[in-house]
Amino acid sequence: MRPGAGGFAEVYAEHVTPVWRYVRLRVPADADAEDVTSQVFERAMRSWDRYDGTRGGVGAWLMGIARHTVADWWRRHGRELPTDPAAAAFAGGVADDDPEGEVLRRLGADDVRRRLGHLTAREREAVALRFGSELSSTEIAVILGVTPSAARMLVHRAVGRLREVMDGA
């Protein structure tokens, strides 16, 4: 597809749902997810002229932008959100260096986000890409810079851990 404003309108229509679902699993509240998703598409529109289709699919390109936008959101808001010093112990030591997980566990707007807070950052990312964006293991592997089998393993481990969290609830 040739980069251009009209081309982007088609891309947006096709990808707004997977991007929204991914972002929604990565931030605590729907209002935050709306802001971040909107920023993802603003950034994508600005970069659309530079998009090179030979370097990968447009979905993966958008997910790359979404990951960076989510990371920026956490950098900006992570310190503002209240943290709980006892959270790491509560999480079984998972989130010593994972304030994002701790915030999701405590402030996540629904079950799925609160439970995702018990995963490591990498597992949470893999789950958001697999179940939010519905990407294949190969696509997740490209985005995370791992092999497809490692991506599959990451998702498998995350699902196992989620099951433990749900069983313990």
Partner: peptide, 23 residues
Amino acid sequence: LWLGEAARSAPPPGLVARIDAAV
């Protein structure tokens, strides 16, 4: 199955309208 179901949500109409306007 639970995860697939929980993750599957439609973007709010307000968000779609906001991005539509920007596009």
